[in-house]
Amino acid sequence: MSATSVPAETALSRDGPQAQTAQARRGSLEVRNLQVVYGSAIEAIRDVSIEVEPGQIVALLGSNGAGKSTLLKAISGVLGEEEGKIESGVISYDGVDVTARSADEIVRLGLMQVPEGRRLFAPLSVDENLDMGGYIADTRTLAKRRAVVFELFPRLAERRRQISGYLSGGEQQMVAIGRALMAGPDFLALDEPSLGLAPIVIEQIYAVIRRLNRDLGLTVLLVEQNAQRALGIANYGYIIERGRIVFDGTAAQLEKNADVREFYLGVSGSGQKSLRDVKHYKRRKRWLS
């Protein structure tokens, strides 16, 4: 697998290897004091700041409804779909302010998102889904990138003519990641890639994510509920609760933190959870924010 990784890198980057070495590495994201409101009434995110450095894998952990997906939508510029609005704060990517940019401009800058639940173009074939991922690229580049995707996910090469809606969940996730790679991104934001998949498939997907980061130098922002899995490959992590960042630190710090262990990794200090502990944690969370 590692033998073919060099051409893969060449093909996937948008500027080729020369540019890659000539410039500073790309794929840095900074979100500062972001506030998002839905329907001008419901505040989904408040005062959130995160930072992702080029080449990092950063995990964003949180339970259902914590605001993870909202944050990703804000970053990708697709909030408007559900009457969401950025009230204040700044999102900058590679030093460019993208807060008010449209989705396609952000893609052109090299930031791609793999949305929650895959969201493939169900009636389109695998090949056509990949084409759509590379909508902004030209035909020759597309062919090269497609080869890389098939090399990463050999299964997709076999199924390239199939209607993507009929693939299995794991295969669909592969198409979703492959589709994002077709744009030649520097930064990949993955929204719950393990959702609803069998452990063995999750294993494969995570192996690919790690490879994308290590071999191709992609920056990864990993949104997960599956904290253990995510912290296993992340450099740094944020915990978001009820629209606020309540904790952040390196993966090691997070794994060591008692509360994170208890509530996200399912490991209790004493082995038994008491109501008092929960209350204590909730109070802490409030205090932290």
């Binding site: 990708s76 779909e81 893609v107 052109r108 791609m112």
Partner: peptide, 10 residues
């Protein structure tokens, strides 16, 4: 098929 996903593709 999926307008938001299409947006995410640029």
């Amino acid at each position: 098929a999926d307008e938001r996903a299409a947006k995410l593709m640029g």
